[in-house]
Each structure stands twice: as C-alpha cells, then as structure tokens.
Nucleic acid binder design. Structure first.
Lengths: 220, 220
DNA sequence: GCCAGTTTGTTCTCTCGTTCACAAACTCAT
DNA sequence: ATGAGTTTGTGAACGAGAGAACAAACTGGC
C-alpha cells in the first residue's frame, strides 16, 4: 500500500532518467526502433533490473516479449522530466565557465533556452557571447519582468554567490544550478543543485591515494 | 566478518569530506580556532549528526565538551583525501569548458597541478592557456613518460570521449573526470566520475515541473 | 488453438546511508 | 575534588536504493 505521492518517483531514479533519455536518443539516431531493457541498460551504463524498475515508476511503457519502442519511450521520459516545455535560463557570471555554459549546445537541444547573460564586470558589458549580449547584473529584475525565468545558473566567485542567489530568489527563480564553491542558503521552495569541480577531483584523488597505499600495504 | 570495505570509509562520506574541508578553510580564514560539530555542520550545509559520524570514520580528532581544532582537523581530512600530495592533471579538449577548467584556480590551491593541455584542433596548438601551451593529443604518450599522470580530465565532444579515455588508460591514467555526455567503458581498476551539465539542469526541470503540476492539481 | 521462447513488471531480500538518542569524556566554576 | 554543563563518538532504529528471481504477458511457428 504505497499511496506515497502521485508522482512519487525516487530521487535516484530521477537522476538517471536523463541518462536513459540520452541513450534512447543515440539509439534513435542509429535507426533502432525497438530495444530490450538489456540493450538500453548497456547503452546507459546501468544494470537491466535497475533500468526496468526505474521505468516502472513512469508506467508500463514496454511490451513483454518485445521490449520498448524507442520513440515512444523517449517521448514519455521527456514528458516526465519536462523536456516538452521551454525553460528560460539566466546565466550569472560570464567568466571562463559562464562562457562555456552559454555556448554549451547540450542546453538548447534539451529544451533549455539561455535568455540572459549577466555579469558585473563593465569590460564584458555589450560583448556578444553565444549570440547574446552580456548585461549588468542589476538588469536582472527588468529581465525577470519580461520572461518567466525558471532556472538560474550561478558561475560567479564564491564570495558573490550568496548575494546572486538572494537576488535570483527575489525575482522568482525557484531552481538554481550553483557552480560556485559555496554553500547557498535559500528558502525551502527553491531547489539547488551544486556542481563543484574541485570536489570531483578530490574524490578521485582519494581513491587514487587509497589504491597507492593499498599496493604498498600488500607488498609489505 | 570480512567486509568489503578496504579503508572503512563509505563512499557517501568520501564525497562530503571535501565539503567539510572547504568549510574548515573558511572558518580558519575568519580566525576561528575551534568549532563544534554543530557550527561546522551549519557551515557545510549538513546535519551535525551526519558530520560527526563522517568524521568518526577518520578517527577521534575532536575533544568532548570542546569541539574540533580547526587547523588540526583540516590537516587530518586533507591528509586522508590526499591533499598533501601533488596530483598531475592532464586536460584533454581545450574548448570553452577545457579553458575554463585550465584556468580554474580551485585546482591549484588544492594540490592539483595541470601539467598538460591537449587538443587535436590545429588552430589551438601553441596557444597559451592558463600559462600552458596547448599541445596535440598525440603527444600524450611522450608527456606520460616524463610525468606520472594521475588524473585525466575529458572535455571533448561525446563522440571523441571513448577514444580519449582509451588512450588515457593506455598511458596509465587510473582516474578520469568526464565532462563529455557519453558513457565511458574502462577497465575495473580505473575510476571514472562524470559531470553532466545538461543532466543537472534536467533534474532541476523535473522538480520545477512537478511543483507546477502539483499547484495545478491543488487548485483543481 | 497451443506450445516454446522471450521480455517486461514486480516482489523480495540485502546492503548502504541517514537519523536519533545517549553514554563517555572534557571544561569550568566553586 | 566535585558537580553542572557541554560536546563528541557510537550503537541502534529507520528508510532508501540495488540486485536477484520469478510470474505475467506477448510473439511466432505449427
């Protein structure tokens, strides 16, 4: 009796759906029309049992004895994670990373539309990046009046991140992707995801060191 | 019971240690010499119980009734995750993202040293990025002979990622940070971490959409 | 129509991670 | 020295996720 939530999809599953979506797109481009859970799982780099369980949360979109229709499943996953909608994105901080994000083709092809590039450095103002003009950060509120900003991307230094987040929340942004190495304090209704490049490397370094000391210990 | 935990530190804890480290650095810069688990947890954005349990895997570095010595704990965590060592890093793919990574100051300050920038685009060769000259990818093997490459960062398009990974593994790299939107197949002894910008946005979009449809349902 | 082969959807179990609660241990004032 | 007040470290309950196994359901041949 799991009457938990109407859309009760576990967080871990949500994080994998985009991976499946990407694998399905690859399969579709190769001309594949139908695939088994085994084949799709291999393309996505997960186990087939986990894949089937993940998909079962969305509904029964496969056919027993046959497999999944690639185009149909792709549509269903895309609909579930909101790919059919158009998400206006504002990028704050147009340094090296911000420019990389603005130019990232993976956004546009997945329903994300970068509508504004903001930075407080005067030397950037007016400069064209990815077909958009860099504007001063203070113009955020006027931009928010024209378009319904859904997602804010923070790519500023750590000491400026909290202020940017506060301003984004103030103009109604409820989803933030934070690249600054800082812990953001936001209201409960705002979702924050953090990507920290240095932390990823440090995790790798830990495992690397562990292997090294392990080898030493084994030889001793 | 011969459990399969070589060092006894859970993966989830390892992923948080760098966060604690960063919080400790901030506290140290503010002149704080001692802090309680409560204060450190707040600075790191986690619960105090989880923090204490995480730290307990490293040892008993706190003092009951007092708290943790910031400098001492910082050293211990840094040593545990290998921050005292020097990790040579090679970045492959010097596009927008690769350049951002090469310039990222957070690497050098944490023991990571970018020793080579590789890209196959001839127009980049010889160009100076972050004080290093961009070299052709084929020079990887000769570079690997001179320095003991620990970590490889892949910032190339998806269709080139697997080939780059294979070459990195061939020259002895055992840790890979992959920014390409592709599933990499590597031998078991190679650790791979994946950062996918589009996926992070898609996860945010899912929650955004869920909130929207939830509000609709509530009003209906 | 029926049987063999295939593949999904789901149930069950086990492992891993989180949270709670509290004893152990330290400081400080008296 | 002792007791009151803190704070750590950890054992135990709790919840979420991973993986194996299997019944249900579909296809195709005869």
């Amino acid at each position: 009796m799991t009457h938990s939530t109407p859309t009760g999809i576990p967080e871990a599953t949500v994080a994998r759906l985009p991976v499946y979506l990407r694998a399905l797109t690859t399969l579709a481009e190769q001309g594949t029309e139908t695939c088994s859970s085994e084949a799709l799982a291999a393309a996505a780099g997960v186990g087939s049992a986990k894949l089937r369980k993940d998909l079962s949360y969305l509904g029964s979109y496969g056919t027993r004895g046959v497999g999944y229709d690639v185009a149909y499943l792709r549509y269903q996953i895309g609909r579930e994670i909101g790919l059919t909608q158009d998400w206006p994105v504002v990028v704050v901080g147009i340094g090296n990373l911000g420019q990389a994000l603005a130019n990232y083709s993976g956004f546009r092809s997945r329903g994300f539309r970068v509508v504004a590039l903001l930075d407080d450095a005067p030397e950037l103002h007016g400069r064209q990046v990815a077909g958009l003009e860099v504007r001063p950060f203070r113009e955020l509120s006027s931009i928010a009046e024209r378009v319904d900003l859904a997602i804010g991307v923070i790519a500023v230094p750590a000491d400026a991140a909290q202020n940017v987040a506060d301003r984004l929340v103030a103009v109604g942004v409820t989803s933030i992707l934070n690249f600054a190495p800082a812990v953001l304090a936001v209201p409960d209704h705002v979702a924050v995801r953090k990507v920290d490049l240095a932390i990823e490397l440090q995790i790798l370094a830990y495992h690397q060191q562990r292997r090294a000391t392990e080898a030493e210990g084994a030889s001793a």
